[in-house]
């Protein structure tokens, strides 16, 4: 197990270096000039432009800028945003809870719906339930998020008027930023209706964000379950006279979960990408929306810092998933 973990850590170093290069390079490859964009419609004189560029250090060779970026990282300095002048790390930490909240609820929905769906489809293989749910999963998997989000908004917000279109809570409610987790803060504020409002705002975006992971998890659960159900130890469990619940829900499921956990881990990265679109559609004030805004402003420090932090989060989550994998799979644990 220790060796397994050390292996994982050793793997993180080159990954990290790769990510700094990509994060640094990506935004600079985009056409557009941050100084010009800062100046806006009014334009800017060539002298002022040169002065600002020098001030920001963008006149220096690219590799000097890169090593300064990495050097600062080691001092915990992610740079300051060009537009707000605030430290990128502060901006990230302020907005991050909104994204965690959305992502966590989404992955929870995806897991809690996806696994049972896949398991039942496997047990009732070939049945109408199997065909309908796996057909739906295939559709969900290939659903363009943007289109799907808009469709849900039109139906549930526009036609039925059940859910709000954007934001995290009604403007009616106001409370100082506590933890940044709206579900918690709204409950803690004690204002009646605040929590319900927060939930209502969360429903559509989390469903949209959950759709693709849910489809992937359901399909993976089904195939893992089908494979496991024909194993000798499942026959043994039945030969021992165990109830169908124990045979399927304990003996088979525990083994089927091993590949499913890996899949869920891989979906975290997909979720981050999905969050960028989802937050934009629903004006959800999280990291995803912040990234899109920063990219359109060519806010170099925000984009490179933000990308790096997001990648860091995905890496940490994957590490946790690997740990969990060891917990659930004894054959790994004892290596």
């Amino acid at each position: 197990m220790i060796r397994f973990l050390l292996g994982r850590f050793a793997y993180l170093v080159p990954t990290f270096i790769g990510i700094t290069i990509v994060a640094f390079g990506f935004v600079r490859l985009l056409p557009g000039d941050p100084v010009l964009l800062m100046a806006g419609e009014r334009g800017i004189s060539p002298e002022r432009h040169a002065q600002l560029t020098e001030q920001l250090g963008y006149d220096r060779p690219i590799w000097v800028q890169y090593f300064e970026f990495v050097g600062n990282l080691f001092q915990g300095d992610f740079g300051n945003s060009l537009s707000t002048k605030k430290p990128v790390l502060d901006e990230f930490l302020t907005l991050f809870p909104a994204t965690i909240e959305l992502g966590l609820i989404a992955i929870l929905i995806a897991t809690l719906v996806g696994i049972p769906l896949g398991v039942f489809a496997a047990i009732k293989r070939g049945s109408v339930f199997d065909q309908v749910s796996m057909g739906a999963a295939l559709v969900g998997y290939s659903m363009p998020i943007f289109w799907w989000g808009l469709l849900l908004i039109i139906f549930f917000s526009g036609i039925l008027g059940w859910t709000p279109v954007s934001g995290r809570i009604d403007l009616l409610y106001f409370f100082p930023n506590g933890t940044g987790f709206m579900l918690w803060d709204s409950l803690a504020s004690g204002q009646s209706g605040a929590f319900t409002s927060a939930v209502r705002h969360l429903i559509l975006p989390s469903i949209v964000l959950a759709t693709i992971p849910m489809a992937v998890i359901a399909r993976q659960s089904r195939s893992a379950m089908l494979e496991v159900l024909s194993e000798d130890y499942v026959r043994t469990a039945r030969a021992k006279g165990m109830s169908p619940f124990r045979v399927v829900g304990i003996h088979a499921l525990r083994n089927a979960l091993i590949p499913v956990i890996t899949t869920i881990g891989l979906q975290i990265g997909v979720l981050m990408a999905g969050a960028i679109l989802t937050e934009t559609i629903f004006s959800w004030p999280g990291i995803g929306k912040w990234m899109i805004d920063s990219i359109s402003r060519r806010d170099y420090p925000s984009v490179q810092g933000g990308l790096l932090l997001m990648a860091g989060v995905v890496m940490i989550v994957n590490l946790i998933v690997d740990l969990l994998y060891g917990v659930i799979n004894p054959r790994i644990r004892h290596k």
Partner: peptide, 21 residues
């Protein structure tokens, strides 16, 4: 009855036991 009054053992002993428990 099965597992109590009639029980059965199989050809592949390692595969017949659940690896997760």
């Amino acid at each position: 009855i099965i597992g109590r009054d009639i029980s059965m053992i199989f050809q592949e002993p390692i595969a017949s036991l659940n690896p997760c428990f």
